[in-house]
Design a protein around this nucleic acid. Structure first.
Lengths: 363, 363
DNA sequence: GTGAAAGCGCTAACAC
DNA sequence: GTGTTAGCGCTTTCAC
């Protein structure tokens, strides 16, 4: 196939130089336009000529060359410890959209809970010259050590769960307030005997909820012996099921169940129903998070809804402020956004205790 | 802080040259070792010296420079159309592990069903010099057009669902065989009246299942009028619920329900139970996929289990064979791996029809 | 606004 | 195995 124009072999892709030559401008100018650098003023007609040439020749920027020269990429690192957690997916999705809208791209890494892999991925984020990093599910003490190389490079880091020992901006949900919302709701329904199906008490996430649970109950005049605690091994449906089964087998008298998250609550509800108790006539259950299936559980679940959109918006806003150097921030940020109570069908009036019902029948 | 060694400003990270100098070898050798290139024989002690130097100086390969020079990256593009589908997450996870084990890294992109975004991402995969691409959820006719630039660059592409009009290797599940497994199971339980809660009949995925449904029923002597079809609008829990509710409201007599996937089946089971029918005493339900919640539905679901591990293994094996140039493949590959029947509690013996029960009572 | 020129760090080609 | 060299395509600096 003879080439009509005197070009060098058309085998490889066009470069910036080809565009510049075609548009009759300097490479510099072409670079500025192609990059969308608005700090340099370019005559609109010139800009258009360059864009046309790029379009016509099918130009695509060589990202490797760009990164090599500039020392930056348009990646935002996104680290998760388990991808199949519904709440994680919700946050991930919103953050991904926001990143995309700003012209950046997500680089997602899932450690599946492996600390060595986490350390490796953190190194690789630096290798990829990420412009920022978001820890979707927080991390451990080991995590914050792994962040140091990135911090030294000046990469803005944000976490969505408090990070032990990390000097890192954190935008999260106010779990203490959320627990208070849940408990207040149950108190208003007349409940007097409570149980909290909690998660790992060593984590800040769970302790926050515990604080809200305790203080709201105490303020509501509930004696501590009716503020039961019961552990769920993990955070999945099966864990809630097992924990609730064990709790019922122990003859628990609580009528108000507050669960660490929606998965546990849904698992617990199944155990409760299998034990022949009715929800919400005999027992009320409240979850935490408001994941999509919560509305679709066999009994639609009353829960504490995380403000996912607000969290994602605040996260990306802060992140890009730091990327563009606006927020230099002496002190790491800590914001706890308020969740909302979402009332569905799993909560109802406290059942009338037997001795009162007998009185009533006596009338 | 005075520097004891006569180096140039220690501000920036060490380069290959620094490593080579420190180890007393040529940059070439250092490059070979650092890259793990096994095609060049290096004396073990030399190799160790280089690795030690790299370790000591905290060397990290500059990926941008490497990609620019070599024209390749170690990225494998992974494209999904909806990230929050349980089956997608399962496959994604296994493939991610396999990619990692081979020294490559995933570059995940979620289009959320937006065709323009899909086209953009496909271009960007090329920009990132991906070594391969996996379409986790298949794609549309528009998708295959977007693949052309990648195909021209010789990037191996694999899809996990048949791609309309695409000349692309496909490794998927044999849905026709799966449907046959489900129906055979129901026939053996004595069922004579069937309904298939199907998805979009324009897709190959659904037509495969339909074929298996039809032919197995016909071979089993079931008249076509007892081979009902009923559409579910989508593929989620709510779609199954709505479809089943409507079906029951229409007075459907089928006792054997075959559902397009597990989400639809679980939604349908809820509608069935709300209508006062018992599973499996009155109705049997079979799903498709075997997602984690299937075992954990209110009635544990009998379903057709996709061989996820096999699919992921076959996918990566084929992909890396093509990357290393082993499989040049004239013809696109099409493999349909066999699913397995997973019997749980949602299927049981067909209920005895009233007229037979009356006869029995007469004895 | 333009044009020339340097060079980011690496890989690959080559002669030794 | 070594050492030299060229250059991937881009961004940036600087003089104009």
């Amino acid at each position: 196939m003879p080439s009509p124009t005197p070009q060098k072999t058309a085998s490889s892709r066009p470069t910036l130089r080809d565009i510049a030559r075609d548009a009759g401008v300097a490479v510099t100018t072409a670079s500025v336009v192609v990059r969308g650098d608005l700090s340099v003023v370019i005559r609109p007609e010139t800009r258009q000529r360059i864009l046309d040439a790029a379009q016509r020749l099918g130009y695509r920027r060589n990202l490797a060359a760009s990164s090599l020269r500039s020392g930056k990429s348009n990646f935002i690192g996104l680290l998760v410890q388990a991808l199949d957690v519904p709440m994680t997916l919700l946050k991930l999705r919103e953050i991904d959209h926001a990143i995309l809208a700003r012209g950046y791209r997500a680089l997602l890494r899932n450690t599946d809970g492996d600390p060595e892999l986490e350390a490796q991925y953190l190194h690789e984020f630096a290798d990829h010259l990420v412009a920022g990093l978001v820890l979707i599910q927080g991390g451990s003490a080991a995590t914050s050590a792994g962040l140091v190389p990135l911090q030294e490079r000046g990469v803005p880091i944000l976490t969505l769960e408090p990070l032990p020992g990390g000097e890192v901006d954190c935008i999260t949900v106010d779990r203490r307030f959320g627990a208070a919302l849940a408990i207040r709701h149950l108190l208003e329904l007349g409940h007097r005997r409570f149980v909290f199906l909690h998660g790992d008490l060593r984590t800040d996430l769970v302790r926050q909820r515990l604080a809200g649970y305790r203080e709201t109950l105490t303020a509501g005049g509930i004696p501590v012996k009716h503020q039961l605690l019961w552990p769920a091994d993990g955070q999945g449906f099966a864990d809630g099921y097992r924990a609730a089964s064990a709790l019922l087998a122990n003859g628990c008298q609580a009528t108000a169940w507050f669960c660490n998250n929606d998965e546990v609550a849904i698992g617990a509800m199944r155990a409760i129903q299998e034990a022949g108790r009715r929800i919400p006539q005999d027992l009320s259950v409240v979850g935490f998070d408001d994941i999509p299936v919560a509305a679709y559980a066999p009994v639609p679940l009353t829960t504490i809804a995380q403000p996912v959109s607000d969290i994602a918006a605040a996260t990306t806003e802060r992140l890009f402020a730091r990327i563009s150097g606006k927020a230099v921030a002496g002190q790491p940020l800590m914001r706890r956004l308020e969740p909302r109570l979402m009332v569905r069908s799993s909560t109802g009036m406290a059942p009338v205790p037997d001795y009162i019902r007998h009185q009533t029948e006596a009338f």
